[in-house]
Structures are given as C-alpha cells and as structure tokens.
C-alpha cells in the first residue's frame, strides 16, 4: 500500500491536486473580482454545454463499455436525430413529438447497424470500428443530399422562449440553454436508475465487467447488445434534437459532437456513465472559459487536459483497469 498523507491521498495525488486546483482557484478569484457577471455567465454556459456533451457521450460510452465497439458513426446518428426531429417539429408543431421522433429514428438506425452489420463481426473490434467510420461517411453524405447544406434551425418550444430575467448576478439568461442543464440531469438520473435498478441494467453492468461470463451465465448476449446499441444511438439522436435548437443543424455538426464525445469519454473513462458526466463537465467548462477569456488559446486548454489525463491516468478518471 502506498504511503498516504493527509486525507488518505498519496504524495502523487496531492501534487496533482495542487498542480491543477491551485491555478484554477487563483484564476477564479481574479475573474470573479474582475467581471463577476462574465464569470458566472460563463460558468452557466459551461455547465449547460457539458449537459449536452454528457447526453451524447453517455450513449457512446455505454456502447464502448459493453461491446468494446468504438462507434465512430455516433456523430452521424446525432445529425440524423436532429434532422428527423426538425422535420417532425415543422410538420406537427409539437416539440415533444420531435424529441421522441429523433430518439426513435436514431435508435432504429442503431438497431439496424448492430443487427445487420456489426453482429457478424463479433470480436473483431478493429474491423467494427472501421465499418462505423465508413458508415459515418455514408450517412453524413446521404443527409447532405437529402437536406442540402442549408441551415436548419429548430425552434424552442413556446414555454422555453426568450431569456429568464431577474436572476442574481447574471441578470438574464437564455431559458432554453438553462433547460439543457435540466435535460442533462434528467438523463443522468434515468441512466442511473436503468443501470442500477433494472434487470437490463444489471446485465449491461455485468457485461461491461466480463462479457464472457455474461454469456456463460445464460443471458442472451445478442439481445443485450442490440438493446444497448439502440439506447446509445437513441441518446445521440435525442441529443441531436435538443442541440438543434441551440446550435442549428448543418453538415459538420456530426464531427464536432463526435470529437466532443471522444474527449469526454477519454477524460472520464470508458464504460463509465459517471465518468462521462465528469469528463463532460471538465470539457464544457474548459471550452467555455477558454472562449470567454482567451479565445485563441481555448483549444490549447482542451489539449492540455487531454494530455494530462492520458499521461497520468490513461484509462480516464473513472476508467477501470482491464
């Protein structure tokens, strides 16, 4: 057992804490004094962005954790869900229907991908990943063909229109953007309930721990895989619909969200939903504070975080050892 200092942390962990937490604390104090409103608005921006990243990344991490499949078509499913949601919202005028439609469209696409293609390559992780790369290119181009490069901006529902006024310190903040935070928390709670309180969740968790044992225990592994892939893809589609309001739907969104999911999952740990939440918060805050205080260097912060995590904890913050 390594020697622990105060609070049960080793010397190395203390060093890391000081290295990271101290500059952040110093910066926060300076920023709060300099322009309080900007600091807290940026905090909210970061948390709401993190919620969107969390929703999309949680699907990604579930699929990887259970099936060891890096689904690089995840971004395209986000785009698919967004476009389908836009069309439904335009036709029916109901935002709730649009969300359901986006979720279902992406889930069905995910199911088809899993059953028709990926199931036949079980065990060949590399080949599966390359198939998803090819699928992402094809799906993205089909969507470009169908919807053209025109900007599709979805409308927020009436009750989320406009700013909320009268907030302390920040004065006014976009109601819809704040609701993203609510969605993120709701999805987090739902996933926690699913994974820890239902049979399906128990099977998923068992599969993440030890796939071979799960099969040996008599569970229909193919079914569990299909359900998980559907759920993961559906989450991407759901994220697409709610993201279509805040950031419109254009070709190129798929790459952006895929990259965000990758970084969130690398930082937070593969296969861990809690890790996805932590990673999303870190990434969201880093991005928004970077954009607000040092726009030309914001990506350097993301880079630095990525490199720090990979150097000291290659499996991610909540990643488990193989």
């Amino acid at each position: 057992m390594r020697k622990t200092l105060t609070w049960g942390l080793t010397a190395a962990q203390w060093a890391l804490l000081v290295l990271v937490a101290l500059p952040v604390a110093v910066f926060s104090v300076w920023a709060m004094v300099d322009n309080t409103r900007l600091y807290f608005v940026t905090l909210l921006n970061g948390l709401t962005l993190a919620s969107l990243y969390f929703i999309v990344a949680s699907g990604f991490t579930l699929v990887f954790g259970l099936m060891r499949n890096v689904n690089l078509a995840h971004g395209s499913l986000y785009l698919l869900g967004g476009y389908v949601g836009f069309v439904v919202a335009e036709r029916t005028g109901w935002w709730i229907l649009a969300i359901a439609a986006g979720f279902l469209a992406a889930a069905i696409a995910g199911l088809l991908i899993q059953v028709l293609i990926l199931r036949h390559m079980q065990g060949q992780d590399l080949r599966q990943t390359m198939v998803t790369i090819g699928l992402s290119i094809v799906i993205a181009d089909l969507l470009l063909w169908g919807f053209t490069g025109q900007v599709h901006q979805m409308e927020a529902p009436q009750w989320l229109h406009g700013p909320i006024r009268g907030l302390p310190v920040v004065n006014a903040y976009s109601a819809y953007r704040l609701s993203l935070l609510g969605f993120g928390i709701a999805i987090g709670v739902f996933l926690w309930w699913l994974l820890s309180r239902t049979r399906v969740g128990a099977m998923i968790r068992a599969g993440v721990d030890d796939r071979a044992m799960l099969s040996a225990a008599g569970v229909n592994v193919n079914l569990v895989f299909a359900v998980t892939f559907m759920l993961g893809a559906g989450l991407a589609g759901f994220g697409g619909v709610i993201g279509a309001v805040e950031f419109s739907m254009v070709p190129g969104e798929d790459t952006r969200l895929l990259l965000a999911s990758l970084i969130v999952v690398i930082v937070g740990g593969m296969g861990s939903v809690v890790g996805a939440a932590i990673g999303a918060v870190i990434l969201g805050l880093a991005e928004t504070y970077g954009l607000a205080y040092a726009p030309t260097y914001s990506v350097v912060f993301t880079f630095l975080i990525l490199i720090l995590v990979l150097a000291f904890r290659p499996r991610g913050i909540m990643g488990r050892a193989a």
Binding site: R68, V70, L126, L262, L306
Partner: peptide, 10 residues
C-alpha cells in the same frame, strides 16, 4: 488496442 484509434483521433 482499440483505445489507440480514439486517442489518436482526438
């Protein structure tokens, strides 16, 4: 192994 694709892409 499969991590490598993700990390290098990122």
């Amino acid at each position: 192994g499969i991590y490598t694709i993700m990390i290098t892409l990122a």
